[in-house]
Simulated assay, not measured.
Amino acid sequence: MVDPADTPKTPGEAPLEAHSKLTAGERIHFQVFEGRAEPVDPVPTAVVCPHEEGSLGGALEAHDRDLIEPILVGDPDAIRKAADSLGRSIDGFEIIERKSHAEAAATAVKLVHDQRVRCLMKGHIHTDDFLHPIVRRDGGLRTGRRLSHVFVADLPRHPRPLLITDAAINITPDLATKADIVQNAIDLAMALGIQVPKVAILSAVETVNQVIPSSVDAAILAKMADRGQIKGGIVDGPFAMDNAIDAQAAATKGLDSPVAGQAEVLVVPSIEAGNILLKGLTFLGGAESAGLVIGATVPIMLTSRADDDRARAASAALALLYDHWAKSRSVPLT
Score class of each variant (00 low, 15 high):
247 A>T: 10
121 M>I: 12
31 Q>C: 09
296 A>P: 11
251 A>Q: 10
251 A>D: 08
208 V>P: 09
57 G>D: 11
93 F>T: 04
275 N>F: 05
101 H>M: 08
252 T>D: 13
148 S>A: 15
135 V>R: 00
42 P>V: 14
94 E>S: 09
198 K>G: 01
119 C>V: 13
16 L>E: 11
243 N>W: 01
175 L>K: 02
269 P>V: 07
254 G>C: 13
301 M>Q: 00
175 L>N: 02
189 A>Y: 08
99 K>F: 08
15 P>T: 15
205 V>R: 04
130 F>Y: 01
155 L>P: 00
38 E>R: 15
120 L>N: 04
29 H>L: 00
4 P>N: 13
253 K>D: 11
301 M>K: 01
152 V>L: 05
142 R>G: 02
33 F>V: 02
297 T>A: 14
251 A>W: 06
48 V>P: 09
58 G>I: 07
304 S>V: 09
86 L>M: 01
200 A>I: 09
217 D>A: 10
206 E>A: 01
188 L>W: 09
240 A>L: 05
30 F>V: 11
311 A>I: 05
236 D>F: 07
27 R>T: 10
152 V>R: 10
130 F>N: 06
42 P>Q: 12
149 H>P: 12
164 I>E: 01
311 A>T: 02
157 R>V: 08
8 P>L: 04
91 D>G: 12
44 P>H: 06
88 R>I: 03
6 D>G: 14
310 R>N: 14
266 L>N: 06
176 A>L: 04
334 T>H: 04
21 K>R: 15
274 G>H: 05
280 G>R: 05
